[in-house]
Amino acid sequence: MKFAYYPGCSLESTACEYNASVLAAFEALGVSLQELEDWNCCGASSAHSMNQDLALALPARNIAIAQKSGLDVVMPCAACFNRHKMADHALKNDPQKRAMLEGTINFKYTGDINVLALLDVIANKIGLNQVKSCVKKPLTGLKAVSYYGCLLVRPPEITQFEDPDNPQIMDRILETLGAEPRTWSYATDCCGGGLSLTKPTAAARMVSKLADRAAEAGAQAIVTSCPLCQINLEMRQSKTNAKMPIFFFTELIGLAFGLEKSKGWMSKHLISPIPLLKDLKIL
């Protein structure tokens, strides 16, 4: 099994532990990833605020590159996934936009390759059985809530992710790793990541609500697949309250697989998960 890989800008910087843990998990699972040749930024939160056509053209260039590789392309970042799905949807269903994009980028869209979310690839394409077969150190005792945020699940007709109100895929992965997913009602509520720098008070309010609800649900940590949520949830938690660690789900895969490298990722966090992991004898 082989996929094209679009890390996206955050994974080269503030979410470097996400990138490292994705690559390590795939290596352990025996699935190869081929980084998309000369990929560009998808424009994420800003292009769509300034120019609708540019917001489609930036991801469309990456789709053109993936098309050339002939491989389905995996996206770890929810924002990148959303923008590429949006462009793919326009290329597929809107003849006018398609003509504009084909002209701007100078390619012919075939629709032969798919844009895939990392969670979907690991749980459904590679499969939980294969994940299970690699677990060496089950995450026994770790109580966590799964947090998807907005962009992976909405708008559902674009993202085509599972049930946008009640996705289950991350809970299934956590169970497979031996952790204990807790039930809560906020898995797809917005964390305000897009406002983190420009309206920090609003973002902080949204983050405290999520952290409080997670604690109420009996969770010791929040697990996410989105780098923008992850940094916002770490940066905007109240400075005084006990702080809730925020994991990328692939970091937990690395820990449960017993990968030596995973220890290094834990020191990259703004809110250290090390005391919790030591308490639980996972580290």
Partner: peptide
Amino acid sequence: AACETCGT
């Protein structure tokens, strides 16, 4: 915040 809750 473009969270798409309303649109959904």
